[in-house]
């Protein structure tokens, strides 16, 4: 009798272990770097409506699944293609009229039965509206893995505020950490994952510590569409490496062409200075000028004189530092972008 009870108990422990590990334990590696699935992830998610397609970049091929907050699993059909960089890319079409709105974790089960899961990486919306809102934070400067640290608690409060606001997604424009150590990245991700809206991040000058940023989010240059609008996210980097020696200019040109048909085109980066690579400036602000650029870095709002880039066609919106509690919400519609006043977590409303 005793032996049978032990057996049943062991069986249930096994079932619970399998379930827990199935749904949670595979999110990123132990050091919080990305596992098998590289894109999408919590800092570079996809937002799409049923019937639309998205791309998955992965170290291995496999079966893909979406898992919602109630652990309902939806199997995806993927067309895999080998990339030149020892990676695989899957083209996935989101089929299913009944799929509910909200965040999904993306799971892969590879041919060798290895699992990986990226939480908060796929967001489903039934449709995209003409008019929508987004929030902008910058310069968080997480300094440690201590949750009581001032920067950490301020970031947490901003996320709590934004969870209650009407923004459809959140842009976080660099200096996410202060020294880009793995402890700081771990704390940043922990708070980021408390956000109930899609979060798009880009790298700042403080986030450059070996290739830690790439290990966390895979790429610092990417683009996405939200409804009719296009967003190009890129890393200003140092002016020395922002020139045409590297690969970023290729991506910037390609993205600006792909998103040319957008109603509005946004540039999302950490900073703008005239000293950044001239080729990147020519692509983004001269030949096919983007309409709006959003960034941080200066820890202050832009002045009226700074409200348009010196090339004359791109409007500028700079948000003061998130470490000081600042954030901003923007309304986007047919008339363009309408920034609401800059807010602080200490504000009462």
């Amino acid at each position: 009798m005793m032996f049978r009870a032990k057996k049943i108990c062991f069986f249930y422990i096994c079932v619970i272990y399998v379930l827990v590990s199935y749904f949670s334990a595979y999110a990123r590696l132990e050091d919080r770097t990305l596992g098998i699935i590289k894109i999408p992830n919590e800092g570079c998610p996809v937002i799409l409506a049923p019937g639309q397609t998205f791309k998955v970049t992965s170290e291995q091929k496999g079966e893909l699944f979406l898992i919602d907050n109630e652990n309902q699993i939806l199997s995806l059909t993927a067309q895999w293609e080998s990339l030149t960089s020892n990676l695989w890319e899957a083209l996935v079409t989101l089929i299913g009229k009944g799929i509910k709105e909200g965040p999904y974790s993306l799971q892969i089960i590879t041919e060798t039965k290895t699992k990986d899961i990226n939480p908060r990486s796929v967001w489903v919306q039934n449709s995209f509206k003409e008019f929508y809102t987004f929030a902008h934070i910058s310069d968080i400067h997480i300094r440690s893995n201590d949750p009581d640290d001032e920067q950490t608690s301020t970031f947490q409060e901003i996320i709590e505020k934004l969870n209650r606001c009407d923004a459809h997604f959140i842009l976080i424009t660099g200096d996410l950490t202060h020294d880009a150590t793995m402890e700081q990245w771990g704390m940043f991700l922990k708070i980021l994952n408390q956000c109930k809206k899609p979060t798009f991040v880009c790298a700042g000058n403080h986030d450059r510590n070996k290739d830690n940023y790439e290990n966390m989010f895979h790429t610092s240059t990417y683009a996405f569409r939200y409804g009719k609008d296009g967003y190009i996210v890129y890393d200003t980097k140092e002016y020395r490496v922002a020139d045409s020696r590297g690969e970023q200019d290729t991506l910037l040109y390609r993205y600006s062409r792909e998103l040319k048909s957008s109603r509005w085109m946004f540039g999302i980066t950490h900073r703008y200075e005239f000293t950044m690579g001239i080729r990147a400036q020519i692509i983004l602000f001269v030949d096919d000028p983007i309409d709006f650029i959003l960034y941080g870095h200066t820890h202050r709002e832009n002045t009226k004189e700074e409200s348009i880039l010196p090339w004359g066609k791109t409007h500028v919106y700079v948000v003061p530092a998130g470490k000081d509690g600042y954030y901003r919400i923007y309304d986007v519609g047919e008339g363009g972008i309408l920034p609401r006043p800059i807010q602080n977590i200490k504000d009462h409303n």
């Binding site: 030149t84 960089s85 990676l87 045409s244 020696r245 590297g246």
Partner: peptide, 27 residues
């Protein structure tokens, strides 16, 4: 169609070109 090539530099006899490509994933 699968990779990018850039930064050409000519040999002194103008018969060869050395260039950068990301065909293996890195430049």
């Amino acid at each position: 169609a699968d990779f990018d090539c850039w930064n050409p530099t000519w040999s002194p006899n103008s018969e060869w070109i050395c260039f950068v490509s990301n065909q293996t994933g890195t430049p």
